[in-house]
Design a protein around this nucleic acid. Sequence first.
RNA 1: GAGGCUGUAGCUCAGUAGGUAGAGCAACGGACUUUUAAUCCGUAGGUCGAGGGUUCGAGUCCCUCCAGCCUCACCA
Length: 556
Amino acid sequence: MHLRLWAATSAPLFAVHLQPHLTLTPFQVSLECPVAARSPHRDGGRGIRLMNQTARTPQPGAAGQPGMHEAARRDKLRKLVELGYDPWGGRFDNHQPIGQIRQREGEIQRVPAGDVSGQEIEQGPRVRAAGRIFLQRKAGKLVFLDLRDWTGRIQVLIGRRQVGEEYWALAECFDLGDIVGVEGELKHTNTGELTIFAERLVFLTKSLWPHPDKHHGLTDPELRQRLRYLDLLYTEGVWERFRRRTQIVHSIRQTMARNGFVEVEGPTLHAIAGGAAARPFVTHLNALDIDLYLRIALELHLKRLLVGGIERVYELGRVYRNEGISPRHNPEFTMLEAYQAYGDYHTMMDLTEELVCAALEATGQGRQVTWGGAVLDFTPPFARRSYDELFAEHTGVRPDDEHGVRACAERLGLETAGKHTDVIKSEVFEELVEPRLAGPVFVLDYPASICPLTKRKRGRPEVAERFELFVQGMEIANAYTELNDPDLQEELFRTQLAGLKEEDSMARMDHDFVRALRYGMPPAGGLGIGIDRLVMLLTGAQSIREVILFPLLRPE
RNA sequence: GAGGCUGUAGCUCAGUAGGUAGAGCAACGGACUUUUAAUCCGUAGGUCGAGGGUUCGAGUCCCUCCAGCCUCACCA
């Protein structure tokens, strides 16, 4: 379809925008011959055809069916076409971001009016802006628009006498939410507001559906997520938060580059979902008739690259876990994993601090941020506490006191039968210690038996060289001195698999990874950071859904 | 998976004891050439999330279901 259109017309720019399943509306055809489109004869024809389009049932959405509002807007659309304007606009060059236009206020000068009155009038620069109409105040033969783009808002004044009848007729077709271009002089109104005094208007895009309340916007959290585009436009701070997210991600890439790391892209379809203990999503590859899993972690392929001599490597990408949804969990989320040859978990602690501090700086924040009423101080070095020490402190039980640990777990109502003491200890830790870690705090040296990918401490095989960074009870980062002993790795995989329940039996031994280790992986430090949670902390978001543009929702 | 809360006009929200479904904004018609969520006059707009039940009568009470939010559970 695309190719045929491309060949059939000398204006491929328009053809590529057409959806294959859509029939060509008369207007889209006219896009290819804009000069002819101005002819009244053709306009008349379009008017009739567009009437037919009106009869098409609108798609029901979460926002309901705007019904009469759409009809009113389609009337204006038809009028636009009759006047010879393209309701869907086109290229609009040489306009300036509204934020920049506002900065030109200083260029406005006062000059003599040039008449006998001796009064002064303002003379300002000619500016050209494009944006969406957020507010319209009609005052007789004057209209004030609030025009907004992604850099700010500005008022536009359209006067019937000033722009002339043609543009006035165009302005009468404006609805809230339409996208228009304006050109005119930047001056102040009588009340002193910086305003573009329109001289020319360009119609850029019709909005067929009514927009949310100009003052209240959207408040229903479901609508905010399903109609994120409206949320971005109408909810205070949403766009700003996502912009901060991109600043943070960009800053992370810069920090990694500064430290000599190379970014790679590993596979997201895995034959074996490894590197974490989570249930994967299953999918099917028809070509090979095999089931595959969406990756639950980046770890095992990045470590293969360590074997391959890529000494500092990272990936910043999406992972997928088929588990619960909560204010802190989304089925797909963004992880940073980094591996540094010849480092260890202390190396990774320094890197973590550098990453967090640089991200704060990139978002223009100091070392202290408030989150949910708490003040978080990210001034390095972050606190470093050992797992055992924290365990004893918060439970009153010595970590090597097996009976004490079990008794403590039972008091909490935890299931203990048939579980390894370290597993029970870990559950007690999650229950009693983690929620109280206001942080930021590095928790060091975990029980080895719950860390199957981690190197043991020299001379203390029961302790793994691992840290997790906690802030406000949330796990933000997880890092190891990486296990590079292939025999021990294979044994730990086997032990881990033996303990799995039936529903987790999709997990399998990753022989290929163990084979890679047999060729020799350099000693290394490895780090994982949950980017969404980090962004939550650095933007004051209480829910992960506030930092993910399109969080998973049940389909409508 | 369990419990709690929510669902009323395009949006934001009221809705009394179970007795004809309301407001603001938006829309439509009109007035207004310096407005600021403009103002003023007028008009239209509803399967009260869906289905069932109780009742003379249900937005309101009961049941089931759907969706969302929160808490818990699950989650190395």
